[in-house]
């Protein structure tokens, strides 16, 4: 993660990368329920709660450290990043909650039927679009981490497979 004050171990970075790619793909699928079908949309996003929880667990040290130092001296970008992450959490929660309240497949299959309100449907759509924008900003702020990690764990190993020369050291 960009601005991360604590250095994460290499295997954790790899886990983070795989997890983030997975979350990104799930989000893109979730953004188009008309193509995936509503049942896949609902079960996939509900299951992604586990991946999102793991994503937060892997960034736990950063969250705690910046929470403690927020009103002390920290960089502007770190401060913006922190606020943005909270907004992402708040609106992500709103997407999930409004989705659960308008559920057409998951909840009914569990025998739960809620009155369908237009308000929550509108809110679900609006908050999903807002999360898309926030995710764009989140991605932008972590761009150097994404480039570095992709290079280290994806591009370099692939290049090493095809090159006849000695592979580059990727452990740094």
């Amino acid at each position: 993660m960009a601005n991360e004050p604590t250095k994460t171990s290499t295997p954790q970075t790899k886990t983070k990368l795989v997890l983030d790619i997975l979350i990104f793909i799930v989000f893109l699928v979730a953004m188009d329920p008309h193509s995936s079908g509503i049942a896949i949309h609902e079960w996939l996003t509900l299951a992604s709660l586990a991946a999102l929880t793991l994503h937060l667990l892997l960034s736990w040290d950063w969250i705690v450290e910046i929470t403690q130092r927020f009103f002390k001296k920290i960089g502007t970008q770190t401060r913006i990043n922190y606020v943005l992450n909270w907004l992402l959490f708040i609106f992500g929660t709103l997407v999930m909650v409004s989705g659960i309240l308008i559920s057409e497949a998951a909840l009914p299959s569990l025998g739960i039927r809620l009155p369908q309100g237009f308000f929550w449907r509108r809110l679900h759509d609006m908050s999903a679009n807002l999360v898309l924008l926030l995710l764009g900003l989140h991605t932008a702020l972590h761009w150097s981490w994404i480039v570095k990690t992709f290079d280290r764990y994806i591009f370099q190993p692939i290049a090493a497979k095809f090159s006849t020369s000695k592979p580059k050291d990727v452990s740094a």
């Binding site: 764009g136 991605t139 932008a140 761009w143």
Partner: peptide, 8 residues
């Protein structure tokens, strides 16, 4: 997402 990334 790409537009936002490039813009920043």
């Amino acid at each position: 997402i790409s537009v936002l990334v490039v813009a920043i």
